[in-house]
Simulated scan of single mutants.
Amino acid sequence: MDQIIDIATDGRHLSRDRGFLKVSEDGQEIGRTPLNQIAGVIVHAHGTTWSTSLLCELAGRGAPVVLCSSNHAPKSVLLPIEGHHAQGARMRAQWQAKTPMIKQAWKQIVTAKVLMQAAALAAIGEPPASLRMMARKITSGDSTNIEAQAARHYWPRMMGPDFRRDAAGTEANALLNYGYTVLRAATARAVVAAGLHPTIGLFHSNRGNAFALADDLMEPFRPLVDSAVRTISKARGATVDSEAKQSLARLIAIDLPLGDGLTPVSVALMKLATSLGQSFEAGKLTLALPAPPDSLTFAGLGQ
């Protein structure tokens, strides 16, 4: 099962020891994890050091290394240069994709996100009808910005009437930052593994954003993080401690309905990125987007 490794204590050294990531402190080993189980490494601590051989090994396996600021927002992501045997052709197809296809892809992604938000609200006893109605009104490229309208309806009901989403904020906002960082790392890994370029987004296009496509593709999965943060905040308080991090890191293993069965989030992200790459090459859009999980699954997030 894919795992997210979080380094939050100062002074740790990370290295490769045969097939393992080894964590040491003052020359003494304190833990190790098989490299083939690692979906990503997130580093928050000061004074962390690592060996070049470890970074090369992680890159070869497509596992990103994410460096975070004090509010748990990602500042840098280390990813491999090569991620797929047909990477060159697929990136050219990505760059040359026609605007109508890109707009239709964004419509489908926003629709999936709003329906996931609706399911998340339904799981906590909030009426989902308004969001489901909004989802039916989403147009190509979301030209009427239903995504923003849905967010204004969604956040007060999910997190409380006084909540304001602020990436520079503390408490619940910091928890959301951490959960989104986990999700962004898993999505960036999926994008590169599918032979796509993470900078070339569908909607996100900030010139300074090197992971625009990852930010696009993770959108339908964000309400999973939101639900988990709500549960954590109510049960234990909005502190980004080790228990909260473990709960949020486990989200990539949650099963979602996809196709005829259930698929873990990390695999669903892989399938979504791969389907987008195949769509670019074929010139016909076929996205593998998950459906929302049941209410019991939402209720268990964050525990």
Rank of each mutant, 00 (worst) to 15 (best):
G83F: 09
D255F: 08
P264A: 09
N206S: 09
L287E: 13
F298Q: 00
I30K: 12
F163P: 01
P290I: 11
E126R: 15
N36I: 09
P127W: 10
G27W: 10
A288Y: 06
R92I: 12
W95G: 03
T199F: 09
H85L: 14
D241Q: 06
M218E: 06
E171F: 04
L287H: 10
D216T: 03
R136M: 09
V43Q: 04
A73F: 14
T99K: 10
Q37V: 10
E29M: 10
L256I: 13
I138M: 09
S247R: 15
E25K: 10
L55H: 09
K98F: 00
L54G: 05
I252D: 04
N173T: 05
K245G: 09
P220I: 04
A244V: 02
L196N: 02
D216S: 02
T33N: 00
A244P: 05
L202T: 03
I252L: 08
A210G: 08
T274V: 05
P223A: 01
S76R: 11
Q108H: 12
M270C: 08
I138T: 07
R250H: 11
G283N: 06
T139H: 07
W50G: 04
V23R: 05
P292W: 13
A238C: 05
R165G: 08
V23W: 02
C56Q: 14
P293I: 07
A190P: 12
I81S: 13
A150N: 01
K137N: 13
P220M: 02
V191C: 02
I232H: 02
S233W: 08
L262H: 06
V265L: 12
R90I: 14
M159D: 01
K113E: 04
G47E: 09
A186Q: 06
L251Y: 01
